[in-house]
Design a protein around this nucleic acid. Sequence first.
RNA 1: CGCGGGGUAGAGCAGUUUGGUAGCUCGUCGGGCUCAUAACCCGGAGGUCGUGGGUUCAAGUCCCACCCCCGCAA
Length: 313
Amino acid sequence: MRIVFMGTPDFAVPSLKALLEAGYDVVGVFTQPDRPRGRGKKLAPSPVKEVALEHGIPVFQPEKIRRDGVEDLKQLHPDLCVTAAFGQILSQEILDIPTRGTVNVHASLLPKHRGSAPIAWAILQGDAEVGVTTMMTSRGIDDGDMLLHYSMPRPAHATCGELTEILSTEGAKLLIETLRRMEAGTLVRIPQDHEAMTYDPMLKKEMGIIDWNQSADEIACRILALNPWPSCSVPYGDGRLKLLRAEALTDEGVPGTILRATPNTGLVIGCGKGAVLITQLQAPGGKPMHSKDYLRGHAMEAGMSLQEKAEDA
RNA sequence: CGCGGGGUAGAGCAGUUUGGUAGCUCGUCGGGCUCAUAACCCGGAGGUCGUGGGUUCAAGUCCCACCCCCGCAA
C-alpha cells in the first residue's frame, strides 16, 4: 500500500515513525514550508520534515496543497493518505486522489474539540477524559466518520506539552491498528454526532492573561493548558513572570493578590474561589523552577497584586 | 549579522559600577530545645566564581575570544 503522509509538528512525528516501523510504504511526505523559527530567526524545517529526510522520503512543502500540491500528489499515486496535524485544509480534489481515502489522526475524543489545539482546549475546559480519534478525512473540518479511538482519564497535573507527548504515541499506535483493520476489512465507520460537536479556535497569546476572578480550578487548568504556548503570565517588574504549573488550593483571599510567598509555602495567589499554588514559574531570562526555589533568591511580598494593569489603549 | 537576560556550594540568588580574605536564603550533616512542627537555637561540611587567553603586586570583578542556558520575536 502506497501511503502519503501529511503532518507538521511533533505530534505527527510518532505516527510517521510508526508507519515506517510497521513496514508501510511511505512514498511521500507533505509538510508546512520551512518557517523562520528560534533565536536567530533562521529558516527551520518542521519536525516531520526532519524525520522524512532521515529516511530518504521525498518531501513536498506547498504553501497551499490544494493550490500547488495537486500534481505532486497525483504523481505519487497514493493508495492512502494519512494526515496528522498537517495544518492545511484539503480540497475535494485532493481527497479524491488516494484510492482508499484519507485517514486523519485527531487528538481529541470526537466530536468534541474539532479544530486546532484540541489537547489544550481539553485541559482548558477541565475535561475528565482525553484521547485520540482516527477518522476518515472529509471536506469539513474534523467532521468525517470516526474509525477508532483511544481514551484515558486526564492526568491531573499534566501540561499540554506533556499530554501531547502521551497522546502522540497513543495516536501512532491507534493509526497502525486502524490501518491493519482497514486491510483486514474489519473497520467500521461511525458517523459523528454532529449535534454534540464542539469546535475550538486557534490559541491566541491574549489567552495567557489570567482572569483572577475565575475559580482556582479554572485558573490551574488554564495554566496547564497554555504550557508551553502561549503560556500564562503576570506583569512583574520590567517584564512578565510566566506561570507554568499550578495546583488549586482551598485557601481564600483577594483575587489576584499574593497570599503567601516564602520558600516554605511557595507562591500562593488568591482566586475568585480558592487559591492557586504556583508549582513552576519562569522569570525573564531564567529557567523554569518551582516557586519555592524562586523565592529562595527573590523576595515577593504578600498582599501585592498581580492583576493585569488596566492599559486598554 | 533581528532584540535582550543569564552561567558564583546540592537548589535559588547577592557580590562585578569604585580589582584587595567568597556572602545570603534553603537544603544537607552533627548537637540542643519542644507534647509536637514546613518551628526555634548552636555547630560543621560543601565553591578550579562556564572555558581559554590577557592586563595587574593582586581578577568573581577589567580586556579579548569561545562554549552553554533562557526571554521576546516568529
